[in-house]
Computed example of a mutant assay.
Amino acid sequence: MAIAINVPRVNNNDDEVKLVSLSAAVGSLVAAGDVIAEVETDKAVVEVEAHAGGYVLAVLGQVDEQLRVGSVLLWLGETADEEVPKSSARDQRAAHGSAASGAAAPTAKANILLRQHGLQAEQVAASGERLSAADVQRYLDAQQGGKNRAAAAPTARREVSAASMTVPGEVQALASHEKGMLSTVTWHRDHAVPGYIEISYEQAPWLAAAKAHQAETGALFSPLLPLMGARLVEIAKDHPKINATMVDSGRYHYAQVNLGFTVQVAEVLYLTVVQAAEQKNKQQLVTELVELQRLASGHKLAPQQCTGATLSFSSMARWKVGRHIPVLSPFTSLMIAHTAVDDQTGILGATYDHRVLSGADVVKVLKLLSRPA
């Protein structure tokens, strides 16, 4: 009798997973415990193991497709010519989230809205290949005059006024850099869905690369941090998703990489910016970052040298902190957080906008950044 291998549930909030690899083909023989596929959500990549042995009779999914949790991924049989159960056609439609009428497969968030309001996917017109949460919300608004959106929208934040304070005091005007930080924190609070991930890494390869570069160029100080910033730009060129933000429910990919690089001068924290960093070679980029640090130390930065970052790098290694979780700059999705535990071990972390990047995306970047190119 044929045995079904089902699509596993990885996270409680996800009704769909992406099939990222498949190592079993029709006719192949697998043993119990063999890894037959890998599936991915925004938070993890998980191996799918065969809970029984047998010959693969049918595979009901293709790599890079979204599959419904609980649907049949493949059928196993005692012999290679065993008949596939007749329910496989129904399972195929379920795997792709499609009803028999040909309705567009809903995304996980769309499924949540559909269930909350007792709707079927066939009732809602899709604006693309998948039925999105925005499609469902538009349908609800049209049906109920916008009441659903108003009810679902979070209550607008109201800033605290001096008149509401019960303990005597006075309001002091903010300095320009403090106003900038307030603007950044407010954007981070009101728009991004921030996450944080960190890894440890061996510092020896990076320290050796910095020492060699210093000897080659005759630099007075170690170029370690500028070199790591330059490496981040290289990674962004190969992985443009990290150089993006969310606009109008879509991912906005920047046409250039503007590298933000933090510089602390006494009580003032600057986010210096190298414009179009992807157009510069490593030495040019390191030289410009060093020059920006010099200008920042004298409070002589020009406006274009501290605006428009599209991704950023920050280090607190000089303070020997174990961890710091930076605030995302407006309209960015990634800020690297660097520090060092000791001469052997460093820490690379990242604050990221979960609307744009998954945890898997960020881990990949951190692992690439943990070693020189």
Score class of each variant (00 low, 15 high):
Pro168Val: 03
Gln214Pro: 09
His213Gln: 14
Thr217Val: 09
Leu224Phe: 03
Thr166Asp: 06
Pro205Thr: 02
Ala210Met: 00
Asn148Ser: 15
Arg189Ile: 05
Ala208Val: 11
Arg149His: 13
Thr166Ser: 13
Ser161Phe: 11
Ile199Phe: 02
Gly180Trp: 02
Lys211Val: 09
Ser164Trp: 04
Ala175Asp: 11
Val193Thr: 08
Leu220Glu: 15
Ala156Lys: 05
Gln214Asn: 03
Thr166Gly: 06
Pro226Asp: 02
Ser164His: 10
Pro154Cys: 05
Leu182Gly: 05
Leu220Pro: 14
Met181Gln: 05
Ala175Thr: 13
Ser222Gly: 08
Lys211Ser: 13
Ala162Phe: 09
Ala151Gly: 06
Arg157Met: 11
Val167Arg: 09
Ser183Trp: 06
Leu224Gly: 00
Gly218Glu: 01
Ala175Ser: 12
Trp206Leu: 07
Ala215Pro: 04
Ala215Tyr: 03
Gln203Trp: 00
Ala150Gly: 07
Ala152His: 05
Ala173Leu: 06
Ala215Glu: 10
Thr217His: 14
Gly180His: 03
Val185Arg: 04
Pro226Met: 01
Thr155Gly: 12
Leu225Pro: 01
Ala156Asn: 08
Ile197Glu: 00
Ala208Ser: 14
Ala212Asp: 15
Leu225Lys: 02
Tyr201Ser: 02
Ala212Glu: 15
Arg149Ala: 15
Ser176Asp: 09
Ala210Asp: 00
Ser161Cys: 11
Ile197Trp: 01
Val171Tyr: 07
Ala163Trp: 07
Glu216Arg: 15
Ala162Lys: 04
Arg149Ile: 15
Gly169Glu: 01
Tyr201Phe: 14
Asn148Gly: 10
Ile197Lys: 00
Glu178Val: 12
Ser164Lys: 04
Pro205Asn: 04
Val167Met: 09
Tyr196Gln: 02
Ala192Tyr: 00
Ser164Ala: 08
Ala219Trp: 11
Ala208Met: 10
Pro154Asp: 07
Ser176Gln: 14
Met165Pro: 05
Ile197Ser: 00
Ala163Arg: 10
Ala212Lys: 11
